[in-house]
């Protein structure tokens, strides 16, 4: 896997196991500045574990993870905290804080990590909510009052609230109807282009991946088996990619289920 010297995010030979199960087997991936990379792959192939390793939520056993050239594996918590200050994250189920109203969820990073005064942070939060198509009336609602699609949009507003240089998306369209999925894809594309952010998305939704990605990487058994431009995925000739795109049970990708 080629390594660019000035990658915004770089994973080198990252390995992570849980007991005897080797989830990441020497994973390598580079994301350049302003680039949108979508990592696709079946369930249990290590996509979420990769993301958690980058975010410092899990510690890899081996390998290196760089954000803006700063090595994070084994680094002090303060170093990881500083690196993450420049990032945003949209969780699969939004992971909004139930105890806070919508605007405080969006303004959380501004107030806690950037020390912004609450009034100014609220003003920015309402601006960001408008960017994702939610009006100011929503700001005082509890996250529990919102639909799943609205929660995802609030999660997106929270991810972009601090104008981060890097944004991570975990299955952004999972659990949404096709129309709302399309709305979220468009918002992701528009917001990230507007910010000029580098993005790493994990997904198994091919349509969504092709819409938001500059590059797509297929991960299988904890390693990247193909990575290339999004528009080449349909005719890349890689048997793993072809099987995944076709959704075919027959092919090099082995499933942990009994074939009928």
């Amino acid at each position: 896997m080629p390594m660019s010297g000035n990658a915004k995010i770089s994973l080198k030979n990252v390995k992570k196991s849980f007991g005897n199960k080797h989830v990441l087997n020497g994973l390598n991936i580079d994301i350049a500045e302003g680039e949108s990379v979508v990592v696709i792959g079946g369930s249990g192939t290590g996509k979420s574990v990769m993301l958690k390793c980058i975010l410092g939520l899990l510690e890899p056993e081996e390998g290196e993870i760089f954000i803006d050239g700063q090595q994070l594996v084994g680094a002090r918590p303060s170093v990881q905290e500083k690196a993450l200050r420049n990032t945003g994250m949209l969780f699969q189920y939004a992971a909004l804080f139930d105890s806070l109203p919508v605007w405080e969820n969006v303004a959380f990073g501004l107030i806690q990590a950037h020390g912004m005064e609450r009034g100014a942070a609220k003003h920015i939060a309402i601006e960001k909510l408008a960017l994702v198509g939610l009006d100011a009336d929503m700001a005082h609602h509890s996250p529990a009052d919102l639909s799943v699609g609205m929660q995802k949009r609030v999660g997106l507003a929270r991810a972009i609230a601090t104008d981060p240089e890097i944004i991570f998306f975990d299955e952004p369209t999972t659990g949404l109807d096709p129309i709302m999925g399309d709305v979220i894809d468009n918002l992701i594309r528009d917001c990230t282009k507007h910010l000029g952010a580098s993005t790493l998305t994990i997904s198994h939704d091919m349509e969504s991946a092709q819409k938001i990605a500059d590059k797509i990487a297929l991960i299988y058994k904890g390693g990247v088996v193909w990575m290339g431009p999004a528009d080449e995925i349909d005719h890349c000739g890689n048997p793993y990619v072809e099987q995944f795109v076709r959704g075919d049970i027959n092919g090099p990708i082995e499933l942990d289920i009994l074939k009928p």
């Binding site: 410092g56 939520l57 918590p77 905290e81 993450l84 699969q92 992971a95 139930d98 990590a113 929270r158």
Partner: peptide, 21 residues
């Protein structure tokens, strides 16, 4: 119950990604 729910709904992970210990 509150912190446990925050754990299983990834809200604690969200805190970490928002640079909050």
């Amino acid at each position: 119950a509150e912190i446990g729910t925050m754990r299983v709904t990834e809200q604690i992970d969200a805190l970490v990604t928002l640079s909050t210990n």
